[in-house]
């Protein structure tokens, strides 16, 4: 009986249209629970199931951002990265940079035990010591703006890396513009 049943269900699973079965032979409802044992049939040749994609549905909450108060959260809330960018030999803040820094400031106000090192960076088109001085100005511009947004100056240390810490190795406009930045590096006190 059991064997017949399995065969039968297998037949249905294959989905033969118009397959006629007699009502008398319908099995007990309970054995249906065994259905999962029947994965073998041919049509199930499919690529690995996207397990990950379905996972959030079972987790409940709709917002999937990083844990509040962590570095990931800071990056997320700041718009993806903790850097703002500058023009050639410039240290004034663009409106884009100001927007990003407002978001940084608001996060820093929420997590008021976090301290940060503001690291100023320059591109390679300058001599070493001049670039250290230029990076210092950039870091200070960022610090001054964060302070103007209510962050206590005691929580912010400025440092210049000059041209020592490029994030883009290219020697072209694109690379240089990425390397002229100030990085807000979270230090002690962060939750994560």
């Amino acid at each position: 009986m059991k064997i017949r049943l399995i065969l039968l269900i297998a037949g249905t699973a294959i989905g033969l249209a118009g397959c006629k079965t007699t009502p008398e032979e319908l099995p007990d409802p309970t054995p249906v629970a065994e259905a999962p044992i029947v994965p073998a049939p041919a049509p199930v040749v499919q690529s690995p199931r996207p397990v990950v994609e379905t996972a959030p549905q079972s987790q409940g909450p709709i917002f999937q951002g990083p844990t509040p108060g962590t570095l990931d959260d800071f990056l997320y809330q700041s718009g993806g990265e903790a850097r703002v960018y500058f023009g050639y030999d410039q240290y004034d803040l663009s409106s884009e940079a100001r927007d990003a820094l407002r978001r940084q400031a608001s996060w820093l106000q929420t997590y008021s035990t976090v301290t940060a090192v503001i690291e100023g960076n320059a591109d390679e088109r300058g001599t070493r010591e001049y670039n250290l001085a230029l990076g210092a100005r950039r870091a200070e511009s960022v610090k001054a703006f964060l302070v103007s947004q209510g962050v206590s100056p005691n929580r912010l240390t400025t440092v210049s890396y000059g041209k020592e810490r490029p994030i883009d190795p290219r020697s072209n406009e694109e690379g240089w513009s990425r390397n002229r930045n100030s990085h807000t590096n979270l230090m002690s006190g962060s939750i994560g």
């Binding site: 240290y91 010591e129 250290l132 001085a133 210092a136 100005r137 870091a139 200070e140 511009s141 610090k143 001054a144 400025t158 210049s160």
Partner: peptide
Amino acid sequence: LSLMKKGNS
């Protein structure tokens, strides 16, 4: 030497 104070060297 150079000393940086409030961003000014």
